[in-house]
C-alpha cells in the first residue's frame, strides 16, 4: 500500500518555565493508506502529542511530517485549518459534540465548514452516515438526549461524513462500557474496511489494541515497538 503519512525524526519539546519537556524525542513512522493503527504507551509517553502533530493541531519542534509526500511544516494557521478541513477528522475521548446542534447538525458540521456541497447533498450524506452508525431516527435529537455510546457514534459519524483520508481518535473508548466500546470499535473497523479511511488511535484499551492491525508503542517520546498483525 502507498504511504499516506510519513514522520521523519519528529521531536516536540514543551517549555515549562525554565524546564524543557521532551514529549517526542525523534519519531520515524510510515503510515499506509487504509491502516487501522493503534498508538499505545503509558500516560505522558507522547501519544497525544504524536496525534496532535499528525492532525496538524500542533507543529513539531524539529523533523518533518509528509502527507502524500507534501511537507506540512511551515504552514500558516489558516493553511493548517484548511488542511484539517479537507483531509483529517477527529474522534475525541469525551465525544465533544456541539451541544447546541442536533445530531444531524453536528454530523453536517464538517461538510458545512468545507463548503463543497449543497444543502440537500449535505443533508443526504449526513443521514446516510447517521444510519451507518446505527442512529437512524435520532437526527433531530440534541446530544444531551443521548447515551455516551450514542454520543460517540455521532462523533464517529461526524468524523466520517466528509470521507477523510485520516481519522485520528484519541482514546475513543475510554468513557464507554466494554460492550459499547466493542460496538464502537466494530463500527470503525467496518468503515475502515468499506471506505478505506486510515484510522490512527491513541489508546490504553486492550480491546482496541486487539482489533488494530498495527500497534505502535511509544515510550519516553520514542517508538519502542512497531508490531504489524
Amino acid at each position: 500500500m502507498a504511504s499516506i503519512l510519513r514522520l521523519q525524526s519528529v521531536t516536540k519539546i514543551y517549555k515549562k518555565g525554565e524546564n524543557e519537556v521532551k514529549a517526542l524525542a525523534g519519531v520515524d513512522i510510515d503510515i499506509d493508506e487504509g491502516e487501522f493503527l493503534a498508538v499505545v504507551g503509558p500516560s505522558g509517553s507522547g501519544k497525544t502529542t504524536l496525534l496532535n502533530i499528525v492532525g496538524c493541531l500542533d507543529s513539531p519542534t524539529s523533523g518533518s511530517v509528509l502527507y502524500n509526500g507534501q511537507v506540512l511544516g511551515g504552514m500558516k494557521e489558516n493553511e493548517l485549518s484548511d488542511y484539517r478541513k479537507k483531509h483529517i477528522s477527529f474522534i475525541f475521548q469525551s465525544y465533544n459534540l456541539i451541544p447546541v446542534l442536533t445530531v444531524r447538525e453536528n454530523v453536517e458540521l464538517p461538510l458545512v465548514i468545507e463548503r463543497k456541497l449543497g444543502k440537500d447533498e449535505i443533508r443526504a450524506r449526513a443521514d446516510e452516515v447517521i444510519a451507518s452508525v446505527g442512529l437512524e431516527g435520532l437526527g433531530d435529537r440534541y446530544p444531551r438526549e443521548l447515551s455516551g455510546g450514542q454520543e460517540q457514534r455521532v462523533a464517529i459519524a461526524r468524523a466520517l461524513v466528509k470521507e477523510p483520508y485520516i481519522v485520528l481518535a484519541d482514546e475513543p473508548t475510554a468513557n464507554l462500557d466494554s460492550h459499547t466500546a466493542e460496538e464502537i470499535v466494530d463500527i470503525m473497523r467496518e468503515i475502515n474496511k468499506a471506505k478505506g479511511a486510515t484510522f490512527i488511535f491513541s489508546t490504553h484499551d486492550a480491546l482496541v489494541q486487539r482489533h488494530a492491525r498495527r500497534v505502535i508503542t511509544i515510550r519516553d517520546g520514542l517508538v519502542h515497538s512497531d508490531e504489524r498483525k
Binding site: G55, E77, S81, R84, K85, F92, N96, I98, R158
Partner: peptide, 15 residues
C-alpha cells in the same frame, strides 16, 4: 473552550 477546540480541529479559522 473545548467547543472552540473542536471547531478549530474541524477547520474553523481563528477569524
Amino acid at each position: 473552550v473545548r467547543e472552540i477546540g473542536v471547531l478549530r480541529a474541524f477547520g474553523f479559522t481563528p477569524k
